[in-house]
Amino acid sequence: MAEKQVTIEVSDGAAIPRTGDRGLVSAWRLSFLIALALFLYLIVFRQEPYLRLLKLLPDGIIVTLEVTCASIGLSVVIGLFTGLGRLSRNRLVNLVASTYVEVVRGIPLLVQLFYLYYALARFVLLPDMAAAVIGMSVCYGAYMGEVFRAGIQSIDRGQTEAAMSLGLNRMQTMFSVILPQAWRTILPPVGNESIALLKDTSLVSILAVSDLLRRGREFAAESFLYFETYTLIAIVYLLITLILSKLVSLMEERLGQYERP
């Protein structure tokens, strides 16, 4: 049975032709090597203006990573509760969770960010970082919610029935029987959403948050070196997302040790 099982390992391009294929050439290694080689070439051999730009980037990279990490953490929590809410038998809880998903999925993230920062300023003045993190988390919480819902639903009903017949209540069943199993299914898409979230943090630069993209835009608009600036910015983003995607696939592998027969 084991070889027939479909494993979703979207976050690592290596898994597409054959699962478990860990040859020397994988899509991840290829892209990482190319990105790294280009990066080093530009910084070490070309230097001007890449080195000058690179010196401006560390603050921006830190801001981008801060927004990313805080938003991933918060959106996973929101996603878990949304997913549970979507499966709840309580009509009210179910309605609230489902409406949240519908509304948030229907508004572009850019508009949500503008809304939080400029429109809501009439009622509550969110600091820029708070607006960025809340905006990203509320948006991705809805996506994560659907991932959690699907993951939980993928676990056989028999598991619930067995747990209940052993005398566990609904809460215990969910948190000590269903979720630990569902986590394996949930992790790859959560990893993908996290990578997408990281890339979408570039949108927060419209809130005058000095993230990686805004640092680059400031440099480009002053120096008129558009090609050089955005080449380096793209490479830096790629390197960061590739590292993140590697982390996700390492976590998948660890969870894969408990693969069901």
Binding site: Y118, A121, L125, P127, D128, I206, A208, S210, R214, E218
Partner: peptide, 16 residues
């Protein structure tokens, strides 16, 4: 740095 001067003025008006 803001994309538009109007957004900077609005942020000043809001007190950020």
């Amino acid at each position: 740095s803001y994309d538009e001067i109007g957004l900077a003025i609005e942020d000043l008006y809001n007190g950020r």
